[in-house]
Nucleic acid binder design. Structure first.
Lengths: 231, 231
DNA sequence: CGGCATCCATTTTGATACTG
DNA sequence: CAGTATCAAAATGGATGCCG
């Protein structure tokens, strides 16, 4: 199993040998916001058979990208976390997300699933370090029954699943609205004005939140085939 | 055909719906250094059946990531080139390459193929814009029977297949040596001293060449399972 | 709940032969 | 050279059952 390799001495090909199979990078995406339990992964990855999930997790473990952990008390339940090597796939996953946000995100289709964690990663993907050079703040997002937090510290950002210990600000909203906010299709201020979102906490931190991200204008791929380029 | 989709409203998943299938990103990689003919792609992608190559190219065309072009005179032969959307996958491919260079590039295995273009992309992946803020230079690399050039312009870099019009410097070497140079396992100065490489042209441009890239120290994944991380 | 094995219908792929 | 056609092997997905 999984002995299919591209057989190329190339950094990209070697990487895809490890994480290029179906579902693997999405599994990494799930783990980028913190350790996850087997059942949670299964719920997030609709369409992935349980056998395949087990096989992929074993593969990630064998290759040193993830490892099994026991969640701290009071949970004490098994979960999977990324190793340092796995964590460092973050930039690559975010690069794919940046491309997708610009070129592949139309409106949500009827049968598509959505999880707030995906939108959180999209926010992280468009974080502008310069805008946060002098900012230290923790934002907590409560979306439906999921909670995430963003820790912004002097030009760095980290998104994690679960509540924050001492959030400077808390934003509360529904799934649909959160998806729109993260994709830049709605403004937080508008959503709060509407009552489709509520925010509390440090007003200055909240004001700066919207300035931390620079989202692209979505483009329709079929609109720019550049038929002129002949070289 | 290709209607298998992850069904997730997520920028990463949507991207992988488009380019996540086997061989697709490697095809994009080939096209990142300029238009390529069908036969050249086939030679670069050993193991990819001709039927699959045709199907993937058609897919990329249909999705607006690549298009068919006619190479300028005197070639006048058909080839495939990336569209703007396809070109913008470059950062994602380079991010995968950066990860692979650090975590997945041991020494070359016996049965692995190698093409200089892959090493050229690796160089591009580790380009440090700050180091080239005040530099404008074109480097030509002649490796075996392949020629590439790097155009460095005020903090930007672009790698393309084929000779340069007015190179400031020309580096000539063999495939194995070039692979080592691009991966940072050998120094250009040493290789020239040995006679395993020759360089000519602007001495200042050549001196600065080695300073333009910041390569990582390779790490063995199996060496850092971080067994302590339990949260 | 977590995790893995089994069985089976569909897809995807890899390799090669074949055609304009 | 640029692709199509064909067929065997492998990967996927879905359901289901088992066991601690």
């Amino acid at each position: 199993m999984q002995q299919r390799t591209y057989g190329q001495y190339c950094a990209t090909a070697r990487t895809l040998d490890l994480v290029g199979e179906r579902w693997t990078l999405l599994l990494v995406r799930e783990l980028l916001t913190g350790p996850k339990r087997y059942g949670d992964l299964q719920r997030s990855l609709r369409g992935m058979g349980t056998g395949l999930l087990a096989a992929r997790l074993k593969h990630l473990e064998r290759e040193g990208l993830a490892h099994k952990v026991t969640l701290p008390a009071p949970a004490r339940t098994p979960a999977y976390a990324l190793t340092e090597a796995g964590e460092e796939l973050g930039p690559a996953v975010l690069a794919l997300a940046r491309w997708g946000t610009k070129w592949a995100m139309g409106s949500r289709r009827e049968d598509e699933t959505f999880h707030p964690g995906w939108a959180v990663l999209a926010m992280e993907a468009f974080f502008v370090p310069q805008e946060a050079a002098d900012l230290c703040a923790v934002y907590e997002f409560r979306v439906g029954d999921e909670v995430f937090h963003l820790r912004v510290e002097n030009g760095t950002i980290d998104a994690q699943h679960g509540p924050a210990q001492h959030p400077d600000a808390v934003i509360d909203t529904g799934e649909e609205m959160f998806a729109q906010l993260a994709e830049g299709r709605e403004r937080l201020a508008d959503a709060i004005g509407d009552g489709r979102a509520t925010a509390s906490g440090d007003a200055e931190a909240l004001r700066r939140l919207a300035t931390l991200f620079c989202l692209p204008v979505p483009v329709d791929r079929s609109a720019s085939p550049r038929p002129s380029e002949n070289c």
